[in-house]
């Protein structure tokens, strides 16, 4: 039988060291990411002292990988992080979702995860302030606030045992989205950071959902910037937060939005992780293409991704 050339790769030869006595460094930092790739069915360790996390399974005392990815260990917990995969919600994630269903006292929201998330009527800010009580009439007019197809940004409030998420929009930075353009990239390409609403040069805001859903919109003054006192913010938030009407968006802004969108799609094409610095770098690199439409060529995408790669994160 012929020999397989690919498997004789030198870097893959040595097994990732998982000797519990030899991890002096690991104990200090807590987390060590092995850049060694494991594939389904591969033996991770035959040492039974390790705890088995996500992406692994055990036969007897041995631990095997169940996905293709890299080994992550936190103290005694071993898990394998898949290279690709659906978005897995975590509490506190800033996500963008689309309403797929209006139920009784809750909305179902597609956030690109295994299951649809729920947004309870009690977890949204309704016109009239935070203190407002939700009445029966609110239950009846839920479709007035959010209906099927509406886009919103929200935070993951809780994750149920089966992996489904519950969302909330109880902050003025969350809520219905308008004045912009939606597109999605694989969630694995989003680099997590503290802030996921980014003000970009050119009068454009980017809302970068951790779930890989993105929203590019015309920069608008948030309520907090309009000189309303912070204590009255919630009261000022009236019906306009559920408005479906777009403001006037100048052609130049529209073009900038399209340019940013194509720049991010170029990063996706090159499988480059997306962060604020890289989006701006890709945007700058895209300026050598005069027409925004020229950026859809694969050659252009490759060049833009290459230039953005200079930024480590």
């Amino acid at each position: 039988m012929p020999d397989v050339s690919g498997s004789s790769d030198e870097e893959d030869e040595g097994l990732f060291s998982l000797d519990p006595e030899a991890d002096g460094e690991a104990r200090i930092t807590g987390v060590v990411k092995g850049k060694h790739i494991v594939t389904p069915g591969e033996l991770v360790t035959s040492d039974s002292t390790w705890m088995r996390g996500h992406g692994t399974y055990s036969v007897g005392t041995s631990t095997y990988s169940s996905v293709a990815g890299t080994i992550t260990r936190v103290n005694k917990l071993l898990s394998v992080t898949p290279l690709r995969g659906r978005y897995v919600p975590e509490v506190g994630d800033h996500v963008i979702g689309r309403i797929i269903d209006v139920g009784t006292r809750s909305w179902h929201v597609d956030i690109g995860a295994k299951q649809a998330a729920v947004l309870m009527l009690g977890s949204v800010n309704l016109p009239g302030g935070v203190q407002r009580r939700k009445s029966e009439s609110d239950e009846l007019q839920m479709r007035v606030f959010l209906k099927e197809g509406d886009l919103l940004n929200a935070e993951v409030q809780a994750v149920f045992t089966d992996g489904a998420a519950s969302l909330h929009t109880r902050s003025l930075s969350y809520g219905k989205l308008r004045n912009g353009y939606f597109f999605s990239i694989p969630s694995s390409l989003i680099i997590r950071s503290k802030i996921h609403t980014i003000e970009l040069p050119g009068g454009v805001d980017l809302v970068m959902g951790v779930n890989g859903y993105l929203w590019l919109r015309k920069h608008t003054q948030q309520l907090g910037e309009q000189g309303v006192s912070i204590t009255r913010l919630a009261e000022e938030a009236g019906w306009e937060i559920y408005s479906d009407e777009n403001e006037y968006i100048a052609p130049s802004i529209r073009e900038t939005i399209a340019r940013y969108a194509n720049a991010i799609k170029a990063l996706e094409y090159g499988e480059v992780g997306v962060s604020e610095a890289r989006v701006i770098a890709a945007y700058e690199a895209s300026k050598e293409y005069k027409g925004v439409g020229d950026m859809v060529e694969n050659d252009a995408k490759r060049r833009i991704a290459q230039q953005a790669l200079v930024f480590i994160q």
């Binding site: 498997s7 790739i37 990815g69």
Partner: peptide, 16 residues
């Protein structure tokens, strides 16, 4: 071998 090759390329580019 193909999955590993792809994974290695991807890790190098996503970099985080």
């Amino acid at each position: 071998a193909q999955v590993r090759k792809h994974g290695k390329n991807r890790l190098a580019r996503v970099g985080a």
